[in-house]
Design a protein around this nucleic acid. Structure first.
Lengths: 182, 182
DNA sequence: ATATAACCTATCGATTTAGTAGGGTTTAAT
DNA sequence: ATTAAACCCTACTAAATCGATAGGTTATAT
């Protein structure tokens, strides 16, 4: 299970994603809308800023904002950043590899290890190429587009266009043959 | 990541699986072969017995043993027993469902929830229908068969037969349409 | 200057983790 | 009956993690 911290982080990021391009959003706004304890959220956002996901601006009209558009923020990266390894065993993790406590030399033939490698492959496959943009509330995103484009576009044309661009981006990434470590 | 307890449990069960049919195996034998602290392992085996996976026999020549053959022990059941939910969010778990802290009413349209439901489906699909028998060291299983059948069978015929029966069992279960909850 | 808002350090109680210690009970081979 | 071997149970502990909270510092728009 994901810790409360990670869950809060994801929901905070969706809030910021839905308001991408609208300038810095203050912590209390996020905290109120998403029901997250202010001080806890403060620490989470600070961590996300230090890990390069968010930018911040101090002082009046300050707050936090995504450094890149939600279409380019990998959900799996956020989870790894906050939670650590996706793998169920340390010895099948690439990003957080540690030797197993039962077979410290990680024998290549370890059959338990092989099983959990398959599990992590399945989990990772479901996560890879999935972006923050896919977790946003379409209604909020609509507002965001209206805000940027002056509200000239219809709901249907704007969201259809957005969804198409997301699908294209995701498809490109999925078939790029890029190895994604776990 | 799985806790040390769960990892130890799995390895202890493989040890017992490889010796299934040979009567009770004492704790210290498992502890020594699998490098698990004796007292910690004792607690783990006790828990596995209470949850119906293992049987035990006290006294001289006593020990622990699998109540059913390894071909019938689901790995995912062991993980759930020791570790809890497989899901990454409480609100997508069937066996351990709890409401999400961000949306307490678990709105059916929650897009974050949908994402993590897909992830848990993928993880579960990799686990479902996988049995303890698939995690056993073939060499140890060979010995077990030799022990039971008096060593008359050749290595190849015995293991081939075993592997075929495992594959058949797994295939039956995989296509039985049985819903496996998470 | 003032209000606002991020930044930083430190702490804190509760829970979980990964064990350890020691003794009591039951079984069974002799 | 003795006694060794193993199960069973309670309690404890040191460390880490979790889920926050407190309070002061720095930056910035007005």
């Amino acid at each position: 299970m994901l810790s409360a911290k990670t869950q809060y982080a994801i929901h905070a990021l969706t809030f910021l994603g839905e308001r991408f391009g609208k300038g810095p959003i203050p912590i209390n706004q996020i905290a109120e809308h998403r029901q997250i304890p202010y001080k806890f959220l403060e620490a989470i956002l600070l961590e996300l800023r230090k890990s390069g996901v968010l930018g911040s601006k101090a002082g009046k009209n300050g707050g936090y904002y995504l450094l890149r558009p939600p279409e380019e923020v990998l959900v799996v990266d956020v989870i790894r950043q906050m939670e650590g390894p996706i793998s169920l065993l340390p010895c099948v993790s690439k990003k957080f590899y540690e030797s197993c406590r039962v077979c410290p030399h990680a024998e290549p033939g370890c059959i338990v290890r092989e099983f959990f490698r398959q599990v992590r492959d399945a989990t990772l496959h479901a996560m890879e190429g999935r972006y923050l943009s896919e977790l946003l509330d379409p209604h909020a995103v609509k507002d965001r587009l209206h805000g940027q484009r002056g509200g000239k576009m219809s709901y249907f044309s704007s969201t259809r266009r957005l969804l198409r661009s997301i699908a294209e981006l995701r498809d490109r990434k999925r078939h790029s043959g890029r190895k994604i470590a776990i």
